[in-house]
Design a protein around this nucleic acid. Sequence first.
RNA 1: GGUCCCGUGGUGCAGUCAGGAGUGCACGCCGCCCUGUCAAGGCGGAGGUCGCGAGUUCAAAUCUCGUCGGGACCGCCA
Length: 592
Amino acid sequence: MSPSRPLDAPPDASATATALRTDLAGDLRAGDAGRQVALCGWVARRREHGEHLAFVDLRDRSGVVQCVVDGASDLRSEYVVRVTGTVRDRPEGTVNPDLATGEIEVGDCAVEVLNAAEPPPFPVTDRVDADETARLRHRYVDLRRDRMQRNLLVRATVNRALRSAMERQGFLEVETPLLWVPTPEGAREFVIPSRLRPGEFYVLPQSPQLAKQLLMVAGVDRYYQIARCLRDEDLRADRQFEFSQLDLEASFVSQDDVLGFVSEAVLDAAQAVTGERPGEIPRLTWAEAMGRFGSDKPDLRAGPELVELGEVFAATGFRAFAGAPCIKGLRAPGHGDLGRNRLDALTERAKGLGAKGLVWLRVADGGALDSPVAKFLSDGERAGLVGATGAAPGDLLLVVADERRTVEIVLGQLRLDLGRPPVNEGPLALTWVVDFPLFEGLDPAGRPVPAHHAFTMPHPDDLDLLESDPLSVRSQSYDLVLNGWELGSGSIRIHRSDVQAAIFATLGISDEDARARFGFLLDAFRYGAPPHGGFAVGLDRLVAILAGEDNIREVIAFPKTQSGADPLTGAPAPVSPRLLDELGVRVLPPPT
RNA sequence: GGUCCCGUGGUGCAGUCAGGAGUGCACGCCGCCCUGUCAAGGCGGAGGUCGCGAGUUCAAAUCUCGUCGGGACCGCCA
């Protein structure tokens, strides 16, 4: 992402002036020449030229400006200073075109040290990437760097754009509780002991899902919130314990309505950050996404799609293909130079993903296929393979024959292994994935497992399949995908008790179970629940990609490490025995 | 729960495969010099539990095992 992309107009000087300063350092331009200014910030760098000339780069939130001082021997890196002086054009030949403030400097400076500072634990510059533990331990220093300041700005810009889009579309911001009730579904929850009722617990919400549905019953009609969500699951580059969502829910809506609300907000956010509005977000059905990309969160940037090869090999004599329920291929452009070691590794990878094997063919100059199995294929099959995949010399072809789902998942993963650019690279590849199956498979007891949650409305055309063929029932649920990252998901909810009862029956949830788990929601629905649906956009992921980062920790002010610790505060930490007593909590000795 | 990678003055790296004195590079830090630099420049200096603990060896930053911390991924994340 280019650093020149417009973010937001800088606040005007009157808004940033304080008792101690008149301007922000990075805002000064040639037009300010002649003005007396007072600036406050940190000493970014000193360049001393003897006793009576030194340059001090003063850094604040807005950037840096060069201050010319008589001597700087009493200044050190990261000292907090107040500089007063006169803005002036730089002398002929000393303009710095790499600096936004490079046409001017602040001359005749008086420098007041507001606070001395120890040398920083790592350089406050984007030029070197310090150890991440050190960065987190001294996050207040790390965040001074241009890159991190910019990431915070991108995040605030996205936040503002999303809020503004939701307000414009008539949504009402409502806050929902952080202290919620335990529910047995979904992600592992963070547990909060109750002091007033020892032995009982709140949990932190994994999302405001049920609360926002209650707000629909309450007649709020259109709700949104930039909501903190908390899930006690293992951390990843794209997952933290606590993360933020643009959460929304609306009444009397169709799926198209919801997709429209979310598109407007996300496209606004992208435009606010990049200055360009992406085109309309294309839609794929879940079946298309799986068939063409082998993934329910397809990365549209990652090279060619999977190719159906059943017809090509319909009458094959090659035993590995004959009679297979599904045969598909993938063209990997330019990978025809892979050696046997890499190809063997790919084969192992395919087997690890569930395939019985992997057929690879290198396309040689002239179009001949170089492969251990080429001799088992007829001339027509080889030509058909090249024709169907569009293979060219230098390409690698991969073919898998197996159950359809296995073929798609294996080739989909290999497609990413071989052709996926870094998540933060290239144009924004947004896509909707719609018509997810209602159930994603069977649990060990043979019961369908909900793909989204138990309140997802089935596709109206598939209602009568609930009993006869539940796994083929589509749902009115949908995901938003950006560069192969799941940005969010949502659904139209069930508001009719007869449909909900049918779903519970299919899931094997008895009336008593349902009452115990979701009683308060079912109660609410008896008092007039409007048809409704909603969505939640993962804010950290959206911001990371818009900021050009491949890790959401880079767009979170104070993130946790992969083991869930905060090197800055030392969290998590023990609490006093007295507090535990008050909470009615006893800690077990560590397992041996 | 599992797989893989990393850990060397304050910072970033090289050295580890193939054991031989804490060896090297760049930055930073401290001191001196320097009037137009902008990653300023020159000279000098200080700074080390090679993450930690065992083991092998005459000898371990280097090999082995364990452990701690960090990262990527699988499981997990309705």
